[in-house]
């Protein structure tokens, strides 16, 4: 599935929730179900800087696609991580770089999160994008 198709799928899923409480309940469920980060990646170096809650980040390039392994102490943030991984993990670096993540606004994540809280979210998105750009450059130079 393309990044856009997955985003549309998520937007559709969130449509059934008519209040924030149900959205949070769903994020909590997603957060609980997200597998923990591989313990060898749970290092001080892999902590995302500037996040209020400890959040570990790792990515790898495999067969021309980027795979993310992210974890957080907060279950709600883990729920958001699950969504980001679903949208971007396993996609080509170029597609990740060019992705417009409009689902974040559409499902109400931005309006439900204060600026300090969205900091965590955007730090993750930035990291995902910048790693994709790095992999793209790597792929282009090795061609």
């Amino acid at each position: 599935m393309t990044i856009q198709e997955i985003q549309e799928e998520i937007i559709k899923e969130f449509k059934i929730f008519d209040n924030w409480m149900d959205k949070y309940n769903y994020l909590i469920k997603l957060g609980k179900d997200l597998p923990p980060i591989d313990s060898k990646h749970k290092t001080e170096d892999n902590l995302i800087k500037g996040c209020q809650v400890k959040t570990w980040f790792h990515s790898a390039l495999k067969d021309g696609k980027v795979f993310y392994d992210i974890d957080s102490r907060s279950v709600i943030i883990r729920g958001i991580i699950a969504l980001l991984i679903r949208v971007l993990s396993g996609q080509k670096p170029e597609d990740i770089k060019n992705a417009d993540l409009y689902f974040i606004d559409k499902i109400g994540l931005r309006e439900n999160f204060s600026p300090i809280r969205t900091n965590n979210l955007w730090e993750m998105v930035n990291q995902m994008e910048s790693d994709a750009i790095l992999y793209e450059t790597k792929m282009n130079t090795s061609k």
Binding site: W20, M21, I28, Q52, V53, R73, V75, I76, I77, N112
Partner: peptide, 12 residues
């Protein structure tokens, strides 16, 4: 539960 999660929900 992480304090951050509790704080976020209390805020709501």
């Amino acid at each position: 539960i992480h304090p951050y999660d509790v704080g976020m929900l209390l805020d709501k």
